[in-house]
Write a protein that binds this DNA or RNA. Structure first.
Lengths: 372, 372
DNA sequence: TGTCACCCTGACAACGATGTCATAGACAGG
DNA sequence: CCTGTCTATGACATCGTTGTCAGGGTGACA
């Protein structure tokens, strides 16, 4: 309980300093973390001089620089960026917040990696958080980011409206939405062209002779899911195919529900000759189901989102691939541009999708049907 | 240039406060970020009372709590955790640093996710950084974490020695190594049993009659790669198989180099009847090569690390699967246990691996060879 | 009515750093 | 020798928050 209440004046080097907590009391190996004052005391200079050396400011003599660096190295001194930021003029924490569906997900991983690479080049660290399509979690994660004073946000959202971010935007914090577009506020976004990608997939199936195409998709609360369905339906409309009684199955959220839905679909009367699955987990479920039915070589399939190893399956899975790396890179660039003072109006950047033919999408419908 | 140099005393509510920067000068929409002083002024209370309300401390009247909360909501006040941590007794930033091979990698993603889940439960945010097997990047990332005063570190390392962390460990910062064990210092680690897993895979191939088994692995500077090779060779030794002239190909770092090496392997005289690939990217390359050669149904393959969709290939890929979720979860638990005061000696936790039979590992060698 | 305990509350210092400013010394020019 | 300029340096206030402490008000009890 009693430890060094005595206050005294220490003379270290040629300077008078207030005493630093002397570790005399307990023989614990745990030295406390050194501060600039410790370094200053050891080097025999003032704290401000240490600050100058650490930050590479000019007007410090070579001899002093050497002394300070030696002291810093001896103590294994690491400056506290948060304390610095508190006083620093620009108030930047050199920190970014990234919110994705789940860090355990190839799409998110690629976005994350691209953001990290862009951030690393500027000495910025990245907080990453998973969303799990939970609006509460979204708000909590964003709040956690803001309390930590991130310089900018890159967000995948699930809330219906992001107007809770309006005050923060007004304060000048850059917010860039990825994968899904914002609602309720205006801000930059970087998205795939979901409708166009879905149309691309649909057109591909139409071109291979299919007329009875099923749509299997995620829950329509998710904006991208709605867009993909829209692209699917509109493309069929353009081709003059009646969409009224085509199977459109939504609300699929994982591989298992997609598998079950697929099995039911092909158990019902008048099954489709081709399937468009609007998301990678859904594609997985469809693939599983088609295998179980032994029909993976006769039912055509095009999926939205690439799958790892999709090229090694038999047949290979034809997909409309997004470009998560581009999305992440561009999003990070927008954040940094905003931080650098870009005040142009909020922009939506569309990253193109690409159809990759691998076999499953090129299966023709049974000839009888093709003619019918 | 000239803005409100006049210092005056404001009377807000019933209290005397020093003036807050009045935004009268410019009509910019960018209000600055509110602090506790702003909230206190608006609520007509002292800052310390605001602090009490925000932190849920006792002994504040219900009426005051309501006033403060209303003011905080009006201003969209977000407390600055870093400023708080500066003064707070425990000095915790409620932040963790996670260093993985690459956030764009299924194994790392699963670890990350598990760490995040454990952290979320304690209100802790996670910095994630990718390593890319670059020792310089490792040190820079760790330094960036420490300058941001993370409470603990979870690290995958590539440096030969992590002794640069010794001072930090002495200060009591918990460091848990995942996937690879530390060298040069002693600290907690959570790893798969690489040697045992490799032995498991090898034993499986031996049991299916193979004697001529090839090892394809990553660069031996990586500790896990060495361990897996050791497990492979020792298991063969135990079975009395001469390892002298079995193909052991190392230094494979990506799918492409593994593919090339595999093609060369089967082009050379006396090719193996089975392959053990020590890492998922290597497995990918091997799979590609065997397909190109049209021999994927006659050469047995067991890979270390699971692959997504591995079950849908034909044949399915038999693997020794690690459990990255467990690894991440346990690592996070160890960090938190240390933070909670656990001072037991550094421990190595071994997370078991599991053989998943899917077909490729159960292919028998050509009968002629089996007898020979 | 006085005393005491307890509840609320705010003034103030401190956390670890940086921005501002003052000052000491070196050196040049008159 | 005095003045002025320039470099090197440290004292001090400050950033936004919390720990400490002191003080005012209220109610119970003597």
């Amino acid at each position: 309980m009693m430890m060094c209440i005595v206050k005294s004046i220490l003379h270290i080097g040629e300077h008078t300093v207030t005493p630093l907590s002397d570790s005399s009391s307990a023989a614990e190996g745990a030295r406390s973390r050194p501060t600039m004052r410790h370094v200053a005391a050891l080097a025999g200079v003032g704290v401000k001089t240490v600050s100058r050396v650490i930050n590479g400011e000019p007007n410090v003599s070579a001899a002093t620089i050497a002394k300070v660096n030696a002291a810093a190295r001896t103590l294994d001194y690491q400056p506290d960026v948060h304390a610095g930021n508190l006083r620093r003029a620009d108030g930047r924490t050199r920190t970014l917040g990234l919110l994705v569906g789940s860090v355990d997900n190839p799409f998110a991983g690629a976005v994350h990696r691209a953001v990290e690479d862009a951030a690393l080049a500027r000495g910025v660290a990245v907080f990453a958080s998973s969303l799990d399509d939970d609006p509460t979690r979204e708000q909590e994660a964003v709040s956690a980011f803001l309390r930590r004073r991130v310089d900018g946000l890159i967000l995948t959202t699930v809330t219906e409206s992001q107007d809770y971010l309006a005050p923060e935007l007004r304060r000048g914090t850059p917010v860039v939405f990825v994968d899904r577009e914002p609602a309720g506020i205006t801000s930059d976004s970087v998205v795939s062209d979901n409708a166009e990608g879905a149309a691309l997939a649909t057109r591909h199936l139409l071109e291979h002779g299919h007329r009875r195409v099923a749509y299997l998709g995620d829950r329509p609360v998710i904006q991208t899911a709605r867009e993909r369905r829209r692209g699917f339906l509109e493309e069929l409309g353009r081709a003059g195919v009646a969409t009224r009684d085509l199977p459109v199955i939504e609300g699929l959220h994982d591989a298992e529900s997609a598998r079950t839905a697929t099995l039911a679909l092909f158990d019902a009367p008048n099954p489709p000759t081709a399937v468009f699955s609007s998301q990678n987990l859904v594609s997985l479920g469809v693939i599983h189901a088609l295998r179980e039915l032994g029909r993976h070589r006769e039912i055509a399939l095009v999926g939205f989102d690439d799958l790892p190893l999709a090229d090694l399956l038999d047949p290979g899975i034809t997909v409309v691939a997004q470009d998560p790396q581009q999305i992440g890179r561009i999003a990070a660039e927008r954040v940094f541009a905003r931080l650098d003072g870009d005040t142009s109006p909020a922009a939506r950047t569309i990253v193109p999708t690409r159809l990759i033919e691998r076999g499953s999408g090129e299966i023709a419908p049974p000839t009888g049907r093709l003619i019918a």
